[in-house]
Write a protein that binds this DNA or RNA. Sequence first.
DNA 1: TTCCTAAATTAGAATTATTCTAAATTCAGA
DNA 2: TCTGAATTTAGAATAATTCTAATTTAGGAA
Lengths: 146, 146
Amino acid sequence: MNPVRPTKTENIRETLEAHGLKVTPQRSVVLGYLMSTDRHPNAEEVFQAVSLHLAGAISKATVYNTLNTLVAAGAIVEVSAEPGVTRYDANIESHHHFIDRETGRIYDIPWESVEPLCQTLGTDFSIQDYHVTFYGKALKHEHSPP
Amino acid sequence: MNPVRPTKTENIRETLEAHGLKVTPQRSVVLGYLMSTDRHPNAEEVFQAVSLHLAGAISKATVYNTLNTLVAAGAIVEVSAEPGVTRYDANIESHHHFIDRETGRIYDIPWESVEPLCQTLGTDFSIQDYHVTFYGKALKHEHSPP
DNA sequence: TTCCTAAATTAGAATTATTCTAAATTCAGA
DNA sequence: TCTGAATTTAGAATAATTCTAATTTAGGAA
C-alpha cells in the first residue's frame, strides 16, 4: 500500500520531537509504520509489522508502551471499532470513520464530508467534540499492492 | 434510579419472547436489570447487580452467555466507549451517545436531536447506518436515588 | 406422571489483550 | 568518561472474555 502520509525518516523524527518525545529506534519504527498505513492496525499487528523492520529486536511490551506513549503525547489516536480491540491511527486530524461491515476495514472520512450536526441537545450537555461512525459497504475498488 | 423503561415481569417476558428467546430466570433478571438502568453497565457490573437478585445463584459465564445471546437476538445492544470495555444498553431504539469526559458516564441522546448529516461521502461508500458519539461535560444535575 | 431430548446453565480451565515489575540498556549532558 | 534519568526488555501478573465438558432444566410425547 502507498503511504498515506510521507514516511521519510525526517518526518518521523520531526513528528516525535514536535510532540515532545525523544527519538528512539523503537518509537521511530512504530510511528513510521502507523504513518505508512491507513488500515488502523491493533497492537498485535503493529508488533508483527514492526518486528520485520527491526529484525525481531523489539519486545511486545515496548510496542504497547510505545503506543501508549504516542497516544498520551498526541502523536497518534486510538480508534474503537469492535469492542475488545484497540486500534491505532496516525492521522490526528479531526476526522470520522467508516466501517465496512463485511470486511471490518475502517476508512477515514474527512471532517468536511459531514455537514454540521451538533444541533441542540438541550441545555443538558456542553459538547466539546464529537465523532461519527458510519457503517455499511465500501464500494471503492482497492488496488492490490505491487 | 428510576427505571428508564417499564420493568414489570410481564414486560421482560414479552421482550424475551418478542426476540425469539425462551424465558428463563437468568435471562429475565439480566434483561430486567438492563431495562431498569440507563447507566450502560459492563458485564462485571451486570454480574454484581444480578447476583443480588438471584442470591448469588448465577455464574459469571451465564452472564456473558446471556449478554451475548441478548445481543444476538437484538434485545439489547453493545456500546463501545473506552477501548477494552464492552457496555450494554437495553435501549434498542436508534439513538446516539454523549460521554461525560469527567465522569465517564454515558447518556443516551435521542435520534431526533441530531440533524440530518450523512452528506455525500462521494460514491465510495454505501451507508447503512451511522452513530454519533459526543464528548463533553454533562450539565444535568442528577438526583440521588431515594 | 414419566421419559426424552434439546436447550440452558455451570465451574473452572483456557485464551487473549494488556499492564506491571524489576532488571538491563541507552543516551544526553556534565 | 561518568552519571542519572529515560527507555527497553522478558516474563510474570491481571483482566476480560470464551471455551469445554458436565450438569441441570424444561416442555412435549408416550
